[in-house]
């Protein structure tokens, strides 16, 4: 028997979720800092699209507001702030990781598989989105961890954190789309504050070390 396909809605939602995950993979291998920031903007755009898609098909109007806010903040403002920082810093290459890209991809696949199945084992059911999307967003979060751990420049690490947040907001779309709008806004605002702090610290780092690489950051050993 051929397997039954999920509904068009579920399929589309899953595809959007998977695109977010694949963007995360692309960030893992992006050699240029600028392309990493662009990928982040694209990823945020896809997450926004998912929010709009859910809002439209499930008639949750507050999600439109959220989508509009996250579009302004994450697609336009945050990438622009980071890009300006980069043009001041005059650095274009991302830090190399100690591992090759193929190895990183394999590690990321293995880790996201782990995430997939551990979430799958929990058997969470969502009223609005297919469960696979939750598993995928956990995958996004885990790959973001890999990105932060394996890349050795402050921009990649910061972008890794921002995209981690994208994964979380995707998860919240799946399991908590009824979350009161005010709370969503609070989360977004908080992210904004975090972005500012990351920006300040990146500038301090660059001013002190004339580089965006994290290699000078090995004096303190926990």
């Amino acid at each position: 028997m051929p397997s039954v396909a999920p509904s068009t809605f579920a399929g589309t939602a899953n595809v959007i979720a998977v695109i977010v995950l694949l963007t995360e993979f692309a960030m893992l291998r992006a050699p240029l800092l600028r392309s990493q920031v662009r990928l982040y903007a694209f990823q945020s755009l896809v997450v926004t699209a998912l929010a709009v898609f859910v809002a439209a098909t499930r008639h949750i109007d507050s999600l439109y507001v959220l989508a509009a806010l996250s579009f302004t903040l994450k697609v336009i403002i945050v990438p622009r702030v980071v890009t300006r920082l980069l043009s001041r810093a005059n650095v274009s290459l991302a830090g190399n990781s100690s591992l090759g890209v193929a190895t990183m991809t394999l590690i990321a696949i293995a880790i996201s598989v782990f995430g997939f199945f551990s979430v799958g084992a929990l058997n969470l059911r969502s009223p609005v989105l297919p469960e696979a999307a939750l598993a995928v967003s956990v995958g996004v979060i885990l790959v973001a961890f890999v990105l932060i751990i394996l890349r050795s420049d402050v921009v990649s690490q910061a972008v890794g954190f921002f995209s981690l947040e994208n994964g979380v907001s995707m998860a919240s779309l799946v399991v908590a789309s009824g979350l009161p709008l005010i709370i969503d806004v609070a989360f977004l605002f908080d992210l904004m504050v975090a972005v500012v702090v990351f920006g300040v610290l990146m500038r301090i780092h660059h001013a002190r070390n004339r580089t965006l690489s994290t290699e000078p950051l090995d004096q303190l050993r926990g």
Binding site: I141, V154, F161, L164, V197, L201, H205, L220
Partner: peptide, 22 residues
């Protein structure tokens, strides 16, 4: 140098942690 490095480590790790907490 030490303060900048410590702050970066701190904000990165704590933010990751808080992402998980979120």
């Amino acid at each position: 140098d030490g303060a900048a490095e410590a702050a970066w480590k701190y904000v990165l790790l704590a933010s990751m942690g808080l992402g998980v907490a979120l």
